[in-house]
Amino acid sequence: MKNLVLATVLSFVGFTAFASVEAPELSVDKATVITVGDFEEINVSDLPEAVTTAVAQNYPTATVDKAYKNDKDQYKLELSLEDGTQGTVYADAEGNWIEM
């Protein structure tokens, strides 16, 4: 009987020890940088004119949803067409399409 009472007390103490662990506080006042592979997200308005012109010429019904840039001045563009089709294309700073 002593063993049963002792086992019950020890298990209760063990469960309450895990319950008292505090979670770290989440800080919301810091900027978040989103990196996809080697690409870092940029504003669509920061795209070079050559890239926006290439999109307009080759994909006239497309909207650039998100834009990313890597350290080689290559751009990853997430596009949406009017019919709901979405895709990703890559271009260099001069507006030439590249394969990744």
Rank of each mutant, 00 (worst) to 15 (best):
T8F: 15
T8I: 15
T8P: 07
V9E: 14
V9C: 09
L10V: 14
L10D: 11
L10M: 13
L10K: 09
S11V: 13
S11Q: 14
S11E: 09
V13L: 08
G14A: 15
G14C: 15
G14Q: 12
F15T: 10
F15M: 14
F15C: 13
T16A: 02
T16V: 11
A17N: 13
A17I: 11
A17K: 13
A17D: 15
F18R: 09
A19N: 04
A19W: 07
S20Y: 06
S20A: 10
S20K: 04
V21A: 11
V21T: 12
V21G: 06
E22T: 08
E22Y: 04
E22W: 00
E22S: 03
E22V: 05
A23V: 08
A23T: 13
P24K: 07
P24D: 00
P24M: 03
P24L: 02
P24T: 01
E25I: 13
E25W: 13
L26H: 14
L26M: 11
L26N: 12
L26V: 14
L26I: 14
S27Y: 09
S27I: 11
S27Q: 13
S27H: 08
V28L: 12
V28M: 13
D29N: 09
K30S: 05
K30H: 13
K30N: 15
A31Q: 14
A31R: 14
A31L: 15
A31W: 11
A31I: 08
A31E: 11
T32A: 10
T32Q: 12
V33Q: 09
T35Y: 06
T35R: 10
V36H: 07
V36M: 03
V36C: 00
V36A: 04
G37Y: 10
G37C: 03
G37I: 05
F39I: 00
F39N: 01
F39Y: 04
F39L: 01
E40G: 01
E41C: 10
E41P: 08
E41W: 10
I42P: 01
I42E: 00
I42S: 01
N43V: 05
N43D: 10
N43M: 10
V44H: 04
V44P: 04
D46K: 00
D46S: 01
D46T: 00
L47Q: 09
L47A: 04
L47T: 08
L47K: 13
P48C: 07
P48S: 06
P48F: 01
E49P: 09
A50Y: 07
A50L: 10
A50C: 08
V51R: 02
V51N: 03
V51F: 02
V51I: 05
V51M: 02
T52H: 12
A54W: 09
A54N: 12
A54Q: 10
V55A: 09
V55N: 05
A56R: 11
Y59W: 06
Y59K: 06
Y59S: 03
P60W: 00
P60D: 00
A62S: 04
A62C: 06
A62D: 04
T63H: 15
T63S: 05
V64H: 05
V64R: 02
V64Q: 04
V64M: 02
V64K: 03
V64D: 03
D65N: 07
D65Y: 03
K66M: 02
K66Q: 01
A67N: 03
K69M: 02
K69N: 02
K69T: 06
N70A: 03
N70E: 06
N70F: 02
N70P: 07
N70C: 05
D71N: 07
D71C: 02
K72D: 02
D73Y: 09
D73T: 13
D73S: 14
Q74R: 09
